[in-house]
């Protein structure tokens, strides 16, 4: 593993893409940055602009408007950029799969690297998921 990949795994900048969620997952994502969980220990920070991001965190079921924007966001992000789908909605649309305003799940719009199910998933589950993603990056 070269130095650049190692640096990438140790300093991820997260961009939070909320594609019409119910805000429950978003609050749990914000919990990661509070004193109890503090993911800045692992070098994970929130980015204001998608151009600064290494990870796109997607929450919610995309509807016709946000699906378009999610695709644009992914195209604007500098590669390598990983996509994490957080919550049951982003992973598989749960109760909204026959809904009139939901065209497709997240992984038909952008390539998803990691699914974290739950409604909402616990912050511990998210940290465990991120560690799995990092291990995959390191080739373990």
């Amino acid at each position: 593993m070269n130095l650049r990949t190692k640096a990438l795994t140790k300093s991820l900048a997260v961009f939070h893409a909320a594609t019409s969620p119910c805000n429950n997952c978003d609050i749990e994502v914000l919990d990661l940055f509070t004193p109890r969980h503090d993911v800045e220990r692992f070098g994970i920070t929130l980015a204001g602009s998608v151009r600064h991001a290494d990870v796109l965190v997607v929450t919610g079921v995309p509807n016709y408007k946000t699906a378009e924007r999610l695709k644009k966001l992914y195209e604007q992000a500098p590669k390598p950029c990983f996509v994490i789908a957080i919550g049951g909605c982003a992973c598989g649309r749960i109760v909204f799969q026959d809904s009139y305003n939901s065209p497709c799940p997240v992984d038909e719009i952008v390539p998803v690297d990691l699914y974290i199910p739950g409604c909402p998933p616990k912050p511990e589950a998210m940290i465990a998921g991120i560690i799995k993603l990092l291990n995959k990056l390191k080739g373990k």
Partner: peptide
């Protein structure tokens, strides 16, 4: 000050190296 642990001492060096691995748009 915010009662967190904070990053390790080499964090900012890693950040700079990481930027060199990213695409320039």
């Amino acid at each position: 000050l915010q009662w967190r642990v904070g990053p390790p001492w080499y964090q900012n060096f890693l950040d700079i190296i990481k930027f060199s691995a990213k695409e320039i748009i």
